[in-house]
Nucleic acid binder design. Sequence first.
DNA 1: TGATAATCGAGACGGTACGTCCGGTCTTGAC
DNA 2: GTCAAGACCGGACGTACCGTCTCGATTATCA
Lengths: 213, 213, 213, 213
Amino acid sequence: MTPPVPETTEPVRGRPRNQQTHQAILEAARSLLNREGESRFSIEQVASAAGVSKASIYRRWPTKGALLIELYMEGLPEVITVDARSLRSELKRYLLDTVERLQNPLWRSILRSLVAEGQYDPVTAELLRERVVAPRRAAGSHLLQHAVATGQIPAGLDHELILDLLFGPLWYRLLFEHAPIDNDFAERLLRQVEPLLFSGSSPPPVAASRRRR
Amino acid sequence: MTPPVPETTEPVRGRPRNQQTHQAILEAARSLLNREGESRFSIEQVASAAGVSKASIYRRWPTKGALLIELYMEGLPEVITVDARSLRSELKRYLLDTVERLQNPLWRSILRSLVAEGQYDPVTAELLRERVVAPRRAAGSHLLQHAVATGQIPAGLDHELILDLLFGPLWYRLLFEHAPIDNDFAERLLRQVEPLLFSGSSPPPVAASRRRR
Amino acid sequence: MTPPVPETTEPVRGRPRNQQTHQAILEAARSLLNREGESRFSIEQVASAAGVSKASIYRRWPTKGALLIELYMEGLPEVITVDARSLRSELKRYLLDTVERLQNPLWRSILRSLVAEGQYDPVTAELLRERVVAPRRAAGSHLLQHAVATGQIPAGLDHELILDLLFGPLWYRLLFEHAPIDNDFAERLLRQVEPLLFSGSSPPPVAASRRRR
Amino acid sequence: MTPPVPETTEPVRGRPRNQQTHQAILEAARSLLNREGESRFSIEQVASAAGVSKASIYRRWPTKGALLIELYMEGLPEVITVDARSLRSELKRYLLDTVERLQNPLWRSILRSLVAEGQYDPVTAELLRERVVAPRRAAGSHLLQHAVATGQIPAGLDHELILDLLFGPLWYRLLFEHAPIDNDFAERLLRQVEPLLFSGSSPPPVAASRRRR
DNA sequence: TGATAATCGAGACGGTACGTCCGGTCTTGAC
DNA sequence: GTCAAGACCGGACGTACCGTCTCGATTATCA
């Protein structure tokens, strides 16, 4: 998706792909996923709901997982502009955004289907790591490094583990639904994780965070 | 789970279930799951591998998920004796045990299949919550409450969230395999979460984290 | 059924068969067959409808066909008293009796199920010939022979073929239902077959038959 | 049946059916039926013997009965050219042809399976009447009418009943196998039925049988 | 009074078949 | 080369019956 190099628009031989077909497929897939949990998400149903041949789907996406990933990407902001100046506010912003997206049944359905698919299909599993898990972790990692560089947090923290603590609970609640994913959850999650970041040996920089409340 | 009281053991009408059949099914299921990720886990294959009719499986487990849950339960210690005297050592023990179990491909396969199944089948989802998620959370919750009562940790901690922080990362790594689940992970997880519990240096813990409330 | 030799009532060891069970099975079978054509006639359903175990059925009747035959026999008069004095009146009586029985859905259902079963199961096929087809043909044959002896019909007629002409059309209409089996049918059948019998070289004995109309 | 007019041959959408698959199914079905009476005729076995998926069979024939009917039709001459000039010779030709076909175990097997199936499945029953029973009766009826028109047989005969007398005995012997269906049978059947048609010695037939009406 | 034995209901058991759904691939004619 | 349509094989689904079997309980005859 969104290749960095513009790839010299290779001259496209034969009939060009119909953009309407493309959209119809995505639209149908979305509407099927919206009927959350109501039976398995199948290519067959997408095709018939979109009035499209199965081949037209497989031509575009080699795998159910790939289609799901595309739907997932669509729901994300084009560019993730990270204001790395304040770690605290960035974390908060990220969590609240995520929580908001996860209120949407479609979004939840996409992610849950992706995880389900990924447990059996290694290709989807790889996509899931590459496109969903890794980028988020990379962004988080970058944020933490920058915060170290700017003295917001001490060096020597276990960044990997901190990212697990941030993302783990979100997936946990998404997949098992033992408890809601809402703003309250986001705030309590932050409140738990923050002390791990700003608990420097010397007086922790509590001031800034307080002002923001 | 499996109530200790025999509940008036109703008089066994009809031909009793064959324990060998029962074991053959479980055995076959285990061996199929062991060939991790290699195609979907299907009742059909379990039946044929066990030399058993499909009906004999459906007679015992109404659902693929129910069978998986049984396999999951088998791998657990009958009674979870929690030595609640020391929260710190109990947490460590629990995490190391869990990590060890998760080294086993079969165990991982069972849990991953369960999650996958649970994303589509509401019955399995419910089983998953009831038999897998809830008991663990209950035990953890009990542990924390006892630790409060014995003054090991301050009152007023956000137990729910702490449990999310403990279990979330485990599932996160299990399902996405972006990083290993090993003793090192367990120790680092503990090292991160402990300060949230034992925040103050000496017994009665009052700290920055509490002030923030 | 009804063995000619009384067979010395062998001493019956063990618990005797329950006559109520016996009747319950037959009753249930009848009621299932009465719901004509509504799904296959299965031992399983008979057992459950009769509140009886399948074993109790198989103990009495080795085969679905055997059970059906028993139901068939039940619908017949104990003794078939043939008044062989007048072939003409006997034929008429037989046909009208048969037609009347075939008005009964249960009776039709039994015979149709028997034929269906007999096409696949050689044991039922044999039963069908022995118990249903052969006795009727034997009676008819006997009747014809007596009529020859008493000079009612000429010698040298093709008895076998005449029996085929009498019974064939009945089964034909029963199995394909292209036309009803009613009194009109019986009378027209008789009217066609009679000339084949009473078409002696010399004036046929028309008088008697006319008076009966 | 298979109307001569091509009925605007709708433009064949999608991948056309594979004629080899089609033939493989019919071939497998035939070979299974040839192993006469050896177990029930099942779609499952046809599929596996033909190396074809069950779906490919159900796509073509909605019902076991429909497949059997197709096999039945295949064994018939495309067009039934009836030389109506001589009723006597036509009847003889028809009966001898039929008898010859019924010597073939496959043919017998098809018809017997069809009858069995038709006793339980109303759809097959209807097909059986429409495709097997009715056309033959229609042809016979037409023959008789023509014979009346050309003065070969008297008007006023009971055509329906005569057809029952011709076809009934054939089915009767086919289904119960109490006696063979051979040329001798055909000839004796004819010999019995003919007098009913050509009752008078010379052309314009008026006879005892007519007076009885 | 027991021992023996066939019955009873319930229901488990391995099989076979049912008819449907989906996965991914392939094959048409039309564009 | 794409498109819709839809055929194709394979595999799984969950259900229904088949005829046999194995239980504990019951009910008779024989010793």
